[in-house]
Design a protein around this nucleic acid. Structure first.
Lengths: 252, 252
DNA sequence: GAGTGGTCTAGACCACGCA
DNA sequence: GCGTGGTCTAGACCACTCT
């Protein structure tokens, strides 16, 4: 667990001769834990750089470097003249930050949902592996059709551990942006998602939900979503009709 | 053109009341131009921070901030104790940095090429648009089958402006990693690629090259590759059999 | 005007690579 | 042991937001 944080130098590998660990890295970890622990809620301001420096007994420059790293990792928002705030997923950010389907003209399409069903059931083998669950643990399955530009475009199956999201099945109908809900209702912040894409032929369920012909090529996206601490809290399988939309990503 | 650089604050929008521009941003631009202009070749060392600071008449801290930003944008490599070097695409980096196909176990598959053909021909409309070419400009088309784990997996069509890569058609057979070749032979550095993915049914050419059945679902990847200055110098269309591999990406 | 983050400087010291 | 980049500090001043 505990992702080394993209913005920080790599941690020492296992069994090393005890490597150097910079001060600002410790400040980073300390602040990260306090944020994750809920000391400040999403949207709330942290103490000022000066205050944190005094509190932690380090210079302002060191605090600044830790805060810069936290901002790079999207844990906080810094606003000149105002302060430093715990990052908040607005409905809009939650929709677009992890949603890559775009129209041919490059505009992001806004999804809505239809035919949503929720189920509480035991985890399947693949879900156990992906979510790191013990045998017999229960999951909540959300099955829904996503509509873009008025067309049913995507069949989405979302699976989360019931223990992590207790009572989620009673919150239906669910909002469009699940990750904002995770944050608001369960204080769980999705920090990154790993996606695996492949092409697959439409099955009967796809035909029924999307109106495509049997065997039509669909883009299948398998996703696991992780918190800052590296805990996997969601597994998701989406099957998309890419006739009018495509999955856009920039690699650098 | 001139991407504002991911690591720098946003540039003033058009027609603004003349906004503040930090010193380190100017240093960044200055060094970027000197690197792009070939003052130091790929792999060569830049002057030390101290030397640059003296040369530019700013403090070492300001130079450092500019160099940090350049490193973030993968323009330079910094090595403690050694120096600062213009980023170099090794054959391996070039292959993996922009290549997302991975095996089920998460290991990156190493591609090789087969059935390569090169052609010099006028640009088609779609290529003119993507590459920003004038009518009647010529392009070089590379058509090849990519083999992964011993299986023909991908049909790849690479199209580049003939004016940008003069004589490329005489360099066949081309190496596996084209971007290392672009850098070595033409001093063109690919900084980022934009990819658009969709699912499509296998056509006759796919059947012949990949051995899939007609209509089988393929993952189609359309790519444009950009230099640091934002110039699009390559357009690429890949069609992949994702039976044994998938396209993996992390969003954060 | 007070308070915040952002920039810039100058200098000390540390970790690392190499000869 | 020297030169490099990396860390840490202390302080001055600037740009921005709000009252």
């Amino acid at each position: 667990m505990s992702t080394p944080a993209a913005s920080l130098p790599e941690l020492p590998a296992g069994g090393e001769p005890l490597r150097f660990r910079p001060l600002y890295g410790q400040v980073y970890e300390s602040l990260l834990k306090r944020i994750a622990g809920g000391e400040w809620r999403a949207g709330e301001a942290l103490p000022s750089e000066q205050a944190l420096a005094a509190q932690l007994g380090v210079s302002q420059g060191t605090v600044r470097k830790a805060l810069d790293a936290l901002a790079l990792d999207k844990m906080i928002d810094r606003r000149q003249g105002k302060g430093t705030f715990v990052a908040e997923l607005t409905q809009e950010q939650a929709l677009f930050r992890f949603f890559r389907l775009t129209r041919a003209d490059g505009e992001r399409a806004v999804p809505s949902s239809a035919d949503e069903t929720l189920k509480l059931r035991p985890a399947r083998a693949v879900e156990q592996r992906a979510l790191g669950l013990a045998p017999d643990e229960e999951v909540i399955e959300i099955l829904r059709t996503r509509v873009l530009d008025g067309r049913p475009t995507m069949v989405e199956r979302v699976v989360v551990p019931a223990a992590v999201f207790p009572g989620l099945e009673r919150l239906a109908p669910l909002p469009n942006a699940l990750y904002a809900l995770y944050q608001r209702e369960y204080r769980i912040n999705i920090a990154a998602v790993d996606e695996r894409l492949r092409a697959d032929a439409a099955r009967r369920e796809d035909v029924r939900r999307l109106g495509v012909v049997l065997g039509a090529p669909l883009l299948q996206i398998e996703r696991v979503a992780r918190t800052v601490e590296g805990r996997v809290v969601e597994w998701r399988l989406s099957r998309c009709d890419t006739t009018h939309l495509s999955y856009a990503v920039t690699l650098s």
